[in-house]
Each structure stands twice: as C-alpha cells, then as structure tokens.
Design a protein around this nucleic acid. Structure first.
Lengths: 242, 242
DNA sequence: GGGCCGTAGTGGTCCGACCACATCCGTGAC
DNA sequence: GTCACGGATGTGGTCGGACCACTACGGCCC
C-alpha cells in the first residue's frame, strides 16, 4: 500500500531544531491539530511514519510512546496505532500524575482547586441531575454508610462524587475532578484524615450534599461541597504547618 | 561506579503485567512517589537503569521519554537524567496539550472551567495582590491598549491574566490557567472573537477587572473576570450551535 | 594560578533482527 | 450455503549493538 500522510508545507528541509524525537512529536501533534488526522483514525505503521519523517523507527517509537501517555494516541499490539477520541477523559488521564506526585504545599493547592471545581460542579448538579443519576448517587451513599471497610468506603466515596460531577454536565470538569481524586491521592491524604475519627463528620457532610441535590438547591449544594472539601483542606494545612 | 537504586520489596520476579516499558514507567513513578527519588536528584544512566530492571535500553529510553513529556523527568544531553522539582509548573505543562487538541463542545467546557477558576483567582488576587504585582498588571494593561498589533495584544493579554493568577497565591491554579490559555488555544478561539470587533468590549472588561483589583474588591473582581471569560464562552457556544 | 584541551562518560540516533499478537482469508467440514 | 478452523501476513513490542553529539572533568601547558 502507498498510504501517505498529507505532507508538510515545507518543500526543502525541515528546520533541525531540538531532538529528532521532539520534532516527530510536534509533527504528529500538528497533524492532529490541523485536522489532517481525525479522532479514531488509524495511522500508518511505525515503520512508514519513521520513513516519512526520515528518522529511525526507534526515535519514532519514542515519539509515539510519548503521545500515548499523553492520551493522544493509542497503540494496539498487532493492529496499529490510532488517534484517540480526543475527549476530556482521554487527554486528562495524565492529570492523575500531578495529584500522585505533588507533595507538601502543592497538595493543599490541589485541594483548593478541587474545592472550587467540586463546589461548582455540585451546584450545577443540583440544578441538572436526573432521577436516574440521583438514584445512583443515593446507592453509593447508602453503601458507603453500610460498611466499615475503609477500602469499600473509599471506593463508594469516589463513585459518589464521580456521579455528581457527571451530573453537572461538563465532561472536562468531571475528568479534572477525577484526576484530582485519584486513588493514590485520596489514599495518601484521606487516610490520615479519617484516622482522626472524621467518619461521622464525613457522613454528615455527604448527607448535606445529598439533601441539597434532592431539594435541587444549587447554593446549598455549593456550600455543602465547599465545606466538605474545605474540611480536609484545613486539616491538611494544619498538618503541614508545624 | 556501583550506583544502585533502592530495590523493590519483590524478592524473586516482578509480575509480568502489561508491556515492559509500562512496567518501567510505573517503577520509576513509584520510586518518586515513595520518596526514594528526590526532586532534582540525578538518576543512574539509561544503561544502568535498564540493567537494574532487566530490560533493554530501548525500552527504558521509551519509559524515560514518557516521563519526560509528563514533566516528571528531565534529560540533559551529555550530563544525565534528573527528577524535576515536581512543582505545579513542571507537571502541568502537559495541560496545554488538552487545550490545543480539544475541539467542538470540549472547547466550551474548557472555557467554562477557565471561567470558574479565573473568576476565583481574580477574586483572590483582589485581596492579596501587592503594589508591585499591581504595577506589573497595569503595565500590561497599558501596553495592550497602546497597540493595534493583534500579536502584541495577545501577548500582553496573556501576561495580564498571568500576573493576576500569580497574585492569587496558588501556583497550581496559575499553572492550570496557564495551560487553559495556551498560545495556540487562544489563537484558535480569540481570533474569530476579536474579528467581530470585540476589542472595545475586551478593553472595558479588562478595565473593570483592573478597577476591582485597585479597589481590593474581591466580589467585583470575581464578577468582572467571570463576565470577561463568559462573553467569549457565549460567543463560542453560539458559533457551535447552528 | 589560570586557561586550554583531551578524554571519559552520558544521552541521542540508528540499524537489523526476532517475538507476540491481531487480523484476514482460504480451506474444509457440515 | 454457512460456519469453524488454521495458517499466512502484517503489526506493534522487545532486544542488542554500534556510532554520534554533547558535557563535564581533570591534567597539561603557559
């Protein structure tokens, strides 16, 4: 087959700036940005791509790997390389890395961002949530209160907030919040928080959020969510202060 | 030299799950997450790292490249591989990719997130900004109004909001906003917006934000910033509707 | 003592080979 | 005619080695 990518406007030679691999990354990103590669579309083989850019397969593989971890490309063993759907979930998966590797003051700042977004998302959800979605939220709320297994509580806690974020109707915001609530992040922060007997308080706060959703009261929902995250934020701030 | 990384708790063999490269990525991430690799620290050579994990140098290079684009590692040609400072700016650089490659509804959602964060950041800035920072903001505001070159306006517009975000005192939020205002993102959206003669309106809105900062009025600042971003958001929403 | 320059060590690039897996298509049984 | 099987083909995944480009260090010369 003579499958070929739309060629660059460059007629003679590519400006040899930066490493070869970086150029390859930028080239592919540009192809997508300019719409010459559509979401879901299959790319030429690694070997062909390398040949078209005049670089080795090794370098091209590094470029593809880089774009893979960024959620832009997806490599399927034995099948080919594909452009992802380029939706919020695909591209924001890497956001979890930030939450996982931040520490100290950065963690507090991350919680501050989460408080802002989570409160807004909860307010939006109060206005938009459907009965089905509300039932799902209640399911996790009930399950969360019905067990003492920290692992299970954490899982339902995550799902509780995820459902609310989804009900807010902004996938991008939901994806960011998902990253800010990554499993390891919560495990690192929540663990110490819950160990101080904050279970009862957490339950009260979750109940307040739920009440606001049922009442379809955005302002009450905003306040409840902000307070919920803010509690943890203050606790963490105190932990880092002395 | 016999430089060696702290070994895994695993005594026999690593569970062969996923690709070899992915394992290497996770291993290094884990080393950093567990604090066995400090920010700024130099890693063993690619060859040593590959040997320690029992994989080829090629695969290890892909792993390193992946962590490099994520802002976790930094490779210096001829010198070695180093852990970044792991600060917000390092890790959130990839956020720009999201803004660059999103399209359609995703762009509106992105602007919605920016409106929420930008309004809060501006409100915080109104309460915390120092005279020096305020002078810097005014410098860009003046420069922005003194030229007709779109490129220059865009540059000062970016700097204007960047200074305000910095004055809010949350580096993480500032880094996210920086990504949401990436050059190519604004170029794609603002271009069309400004072409419709929105210059005057933009100037009024910037002036309103500035007044609120000078008056140290957080609520006015929040409203002005929200309105500023909201205008573009509404315009873009209308563009995509028909 | 200071500056120059060679050298060892590092990441960057390339090549070629082989492996593991997915897909497609022809073959055969039913 | 339909379907299941199985091999052939093409793909990404891994490996090993070679060489290049650059940095950093230290000894040499002035």
């Amino acid at each position: 087959m003579d499958e070929t990518l739309p060629s660059e406007t460059d007629p003679v030679a590519a400006p040899p700036k930066g490493t070869v691999t970086q150029r390859a990354i930028d080239s592919i990103k540009a192809l997508i940005g300019e719409g010459r590669l559509e979401p879901g579309q299959r790319l030429p083989t690694e070997r062909d791509l390398a040949a078209q850019l005049g670089i080795s397969r090794s370098s091209m593989r590094e470029a593809i790997r880089a774009l893979t971890v960024l959620g832009v490309l997806e490599a399927r063993h034995g099948s080919g390389i594909y452009v992802t759907q380029l939706e919020a979930g695909d591209l924001l998966e890497t956001f979890g890395v930030v939450a996982d590797l931040s520490r100290g003051p950065g963690l507090v700042e991350l919680l501050e961002v989460r408080r802002i977004l989570e409160s807004t998302a909860t307010a939006l959800a109060a206005a938009r949530i459907t009965p089905d979605q509300l039932a799902e939220v209640e399911k996790h709320l009930t399950a969360m209160n019905a067990t003492d297994d920290p692992e299970e509580i954490l899982a339902h806690d995550l799902a509780f907030h995820r459902e609310i974020a989804a009900a807010a109707g902004n996938e991008t915001m939901a994806a960011i919040l998902e990253g800010l609530s990554s499993r390891t992040f919560r495990a690192r922060v929540w663990r110490g928080y819950q160990e101080e007997g904050a279970f009862a308080r957490t339950r009260r706060e979750h109940a307040a959020i739920h009440r606001a959703l049922v009442a379809r009261d955005p302002e009450a929902a905003r306040a409840a969510a902000a307070s919920h995250v803010g509690e943890v934020e203050e606790w963490l701030r105190a932990q880092l202060a002395p």
